[in-house]
């Protein structure tokens, strides 16, 4: 995924337009980032697609309502991710006391069912958001360093450094999980 294909409107312009109620601008932001936000949420809600659907809808609802207050201190995607993370945490809190059901095989998402895939997503969910987010953008959304920097509102050097540390941390978590099992 490219956060911003060459020649397309920049995130900050789209956010300005969405603030002014210009039709189509918010929709463009949704189409640009929905898949990435959804995948992040899926990691945080333990791979539960039904929960991810609900949390994604609540997240975008909050983004739409809060876009006028978005001050642009971070990139739009970083802001969206923080809202998604808060919503995921709320969802986990609400569902923590409910008995955990063994997930049924998901016929709609057969590719998500492998044990290794679930373990990788679990490991990612244990990384701090500031490391997990750029890592997922790089490897799942195929974004370049420049695109990640733009989406998160960070200098490219910082993204590079975070990616380096993210890989280190992922390796640590992965090794820990392997030794636990």
């Amino acid at each position: 995924m490219a956060a911003e294909p060459p020649g397309s409107t920049r995130d900050d312009s789209l956010v300005d337009d969405a603030r002014g109620g210009l039709p189509g601008s918010f929709e463009t932001l949704v189409r640009r980032y929905h898949a990435a936000v959804y995948r992040q949420i899926l990691v945080w809600v333990n791979g539960d697609h039904a929960a991810a659907d609900d949390v994604a809808q609540e997240t975008w609802w909050r983004i739409a309502r809060g876009v006028k207050r978005f001050e642009g201190r971070s990139g739009f995607y970083a802001w969206a991710c923080r809202i998604a993370h808060n919503e995921s945490t709320r969802w986990l809190g609400r569902n923590a006391r409910k008995p955990r059901l063994v997930p049924k095989p998901d016929e709609e998402h057969p590719a998500d069912q492998s044990a290794t895939g679930e373990a990788v997503r679990l490991a990612l969910s244990r990384l701090p958001e500031k490391f997990a987010t750029p890592l997922m953008l790089e490897l799942w959304e195929d974004m370049s360093l420049k695109e990640i920097a733009h989406a998160l509102g960070l200098p490219e050097g910082t993204v590079k450094s975070r990616l380096f540390r993210a890989r280190e941390k992922f390796r640590e978590v992965w090794d820990e999980m392997e030794s636990e099992s």
Partner: peptide
């Protein structure tokens, strides 16, 4: 390993 664990995401149409 991480690339292969990429989950599917639904189309944004239903969300919109």
């Amino acid at each position: 390993l991480i690339r292969n664990a990429k989950p599917q995401a639904p189309s944004p149409d239903a969300l919109l």
